[in-house]
Design a protein around this nucleic acid. Structure first.
Lengths: 199, 199
DNA sequence: TGCAAAACTGCACTCGTTGCAGACTTGCAG
DNA sequence: CTGCAAGTCTGCAACGAGTGCAGTTTTGCA
């Protein structure tokens, strides 16, 4: 049961994300201090760190939602599908999921991943962890065809290909805040990167 | 020509890396402050930052050597080789190169990549940049068979596969400071990950 | 209503990192 | 060899992220 305590906690968390989004949009990442964000959400500076362990983290709330989507896709496999097919479907579902919350946060995230090393680093870490988690589930789903290492290699190849392609495609975009263009880039990246396996 | 100024600068830089290595081994990453490293190398704390932009960076001197090796391998291609063949050779050469300087720094690096988020993040960034550079050269080497996006996807797939496999294999190792075991893991990772392409 | 657990907060502190300004070195032209 | 311009080294002051601590408030539940 979600007690009052829990609901309040969720509300405060969302308030922090909202406040951070607005401030980041207006002033930029480095120019916005944690104290600013906390004040805008009407909590003490110290308390911010009981909701998010670092300043970057506020840009990645719900980073596990995508993983859950992929894991679901693996669970939904039909008999006879091969590992690569399942993985392909899982990653496509993750891509579709990327029209994130409202989009403002997502746009900021893309921008700061370009601009701020600390944010880029965190994003890469999250991706790496997600990738490992997916590989684990994939290995579990095909115990006779994949060991842990093989599953990791396969997943790494797919994710690496899509990510690298996407990076080039997004690099040419000047406006990251146009969801249509971003979505198109994501789709094209998966298409190009995974074409060799679809055949 | 390397003037006295330049030679001195190189020497100081090496002194910093050496001092950092020793201190990191003795006290750990977080417990060693930049001031400690600077003092051990007999320079002012402020001056440290004119040699390395951040504390992490001291763990990655010469991060471009590996890239240069790969680029060379691409340049050395024989007529008739296909992009995947060339890339394969390039990555194998990078792997062989990994019995780094003396090995102490390399062992520390592996350990801290596991333990310290900031170091892990930086390592991933460096890898991403290296990957892009390699992709650019690959695209330039095969202008009629690869565009920028395709080259990035191919490179991303290879590097992603090897990295993910390596991560699993190294995860099972308890002693990162045994160069033989690490080297074996690297070799096995490339073998497993790239087997599908070798056929 | 009362009390224990959990949450919130300010305070003081450490550390990485930066801007600034002054002192010192080196390279080179005369 | 002398002197000047450029490059280097340094301490100092400051800022922001992040943490441990201790005291206060709030909430859940008996």
């Amino acid at each position: 049961m979600s007690s009052l305590r829990d609901r309040k906690r969720v509300r405060t968390r969302q308030a922090l994300v909202a406040a951070a989004t607005t401030l980041f949009e207006r002033d930029g990442y480095d120019e916005t201090t944690v104290a600013d964000i906390a004040a805008a959400a009407e909590i003490g500076t110290r308390t911010f760190f009981s909701y998010f362990p670092t300043k970057e983290e506020v840009l990645f709330p719900e980073s596990d939602a995508r993983v859950r989507a992929a894991v679901e896709a693996i669970a939904d496999r039909k008999p006879g599908e091969r590992p690569a097919d399942v993985l392909l479907r899982a990653l496509q579902r993750v891509g579709d999921d990327s029209d994130d919350l409202g989009g403002r946060l997502a746009a900021l995230r893309l921008r700061f991943i370009r601009e701020i090393p600390a944010v880029r680093g965190r994003a890469l870490q999250i991706q790496t962890e997600a990738q490992r988690e997916i590989a684990r589930h994939l290995a579990a789903a095909f115990p006779d065809q994949l060991d842990e290492v093989g599953a990791a290699a396969l997943t790494g190849a797919f994710v690496g290909a899509v990510t690298a392609a996407l990076q080039v495609l997004l690099g040419d975009l000047e406006r990251l805040d146009d969801p249509v263009a971003v979505q198109a880039a994501v789709r094209k990246a998966t298409d190009v990167a995974l074409r060799p396996w679809v055949s």
